[in-house]
Simulated scan of single mutants.
Amino acid sequence: MLVDSHCHLDMVATRDDLDEVVARANRAGVATMVTISTTLSGFADVLAIAKRCEDVWCSVGVHPHEAGSEGQSAPDRVVELAADPFVVGIGESGLDYYYDKSPRPAQEESFRAHIRAAQQTGLPLIVHSRDAEEDTARILREEYEGGGPYGCVMHCFSSGRELAEAALDLGFYISFSGIVTFKKSDELRDIASMVPRERLLIETDAPYLAPVPKRGKPNEPAYLSYTADFLAEHLGMSREELAETTTANFFRLFNRARPPQSA
């Protein structure tokens, strides 16, 4: 059994073929998925997918791209929406200096509000970081030291060793997507090798970043199996061992989610 810890089912599927997308994932061994919120204005649609599809959960939060228009200055609204039992995580939130679609001060303010929502709810924070390693590490550490511990996963990790080590030092988890299968991802594969097995997660980030051999095509949760096979071989694990490890890690971190009854 595999868990896709981060996908965007509202972007992957229309309402008419959503059931088939989930069915294909199940046939590929992906038994549980988390569909991720990127805006509060679209949260109702994300939540509806989680409620409609068996063993699909969701998060609530505002992506850094949307921080200029929907960024949160306080945790209150996110905390309120996170009360729904289908919500298992806070985010995705963080910093994106690659596209800079929102002003950096707005990104930081909203990021800190999401961290505080994670602290208040006890739900794990889902972090997006691109070309913002130093500021991401600084803010995560400042909020941890100033407001108390919180669970966290560095989603779709593609940064350098310094951010990975900073996250691991705080007890956080690191999730790898199809990027780890790309030909030029040698540094990322080295980082995957140094992540303790008990802190390892996998994801698709569908519909983005399809793994080899599906690279260049729209991604979907069924393709998690390719990333799992690749990463297992790279780490010297069996597919079954990697599946068991990452699934156990997922339910330890996202502890509001319930394992499938068939598991």
Rank of each mutant, 00 (worst) to 15 (best):
G146H: 04
S59W: 06
P103D: 04
E92I: 04
H63I: 07
D55R: 12
L242F: 10
T204A: 02
R215S: 01
M154N: 03
M1T: 00
K217S: 12
G94M: 07
H155D: 07
V127W: 11
G29F: 12
C7W: 00
D96C: 06
A31Y: 13
A50M: 04
I115L: 10
V195R: 07
I174F: 00
I139K: 05
V180N: 06
E244R: 07
A31M: 10
D96Q: 08
L18G: 11
R77Y: 09
Y144V: 04
I191P: 09
S102Q: 14
R15I: 14
E162Y: 08
V56A: 09
A263F: 03
R141N: 14
I139G: 13
L18T: 11
P207T: 06
L209Q: 07
R189A: 13
I115M: 07
E220L: 01
F230E: 12
A13C: 14
A132C: 03
P260A: 14
P260M: 07
V212D: 15
F182I: 05
F43N: 15
E108T: 06
R77I: 02
R256K: 10
E143G: 15
M154H: 08
I139A: 09
M154V: 01
V3D: 00
M154L: 15
R141W: 10
A13T: 11
S59G: 13
V180P: 08
Y150H: 15
E134R: 10
E241P: 06
C7S: 08
D135Q: 08
R15G: 00
R24E: 10
C152A: 15
P75R: 11
L2V: 03
P105W: 05
L188R: 06
P196S: 03
T247K: 12
P196I: 00
S159E: 06
A210L: 05
S5I: 00
L200I: 01
A74Y: 02
A48K: 11
T204M: 05
D17G: 09
A166Q: 02
Y173V: 01
C156F: 03
S59A: 04
H63C: 11
I179L: 05
M1R: 11
S93W: 09
I191V: 14
Q120R: 04
A74L: 00
S177G: 15
L253Q: 13
D169S: 14
G61R: 11
F176T: 14
G91Y: 02
T136W: 01
P149W: 05
I174D: 01
L209N: 11
V60W: 02
D100H: 12
P64N: 14
I202C: 09
M237R: 06
K217G: 09
L95T: 09
A132R: 00
C58H: 10
F182T: 15
V60E: 09
L188A: 12
T181S: 13
F157P: 15
R215Y: 14
P218Y: 05
K184S: 08
S110H: 03
P85W: 00
V127R: 11
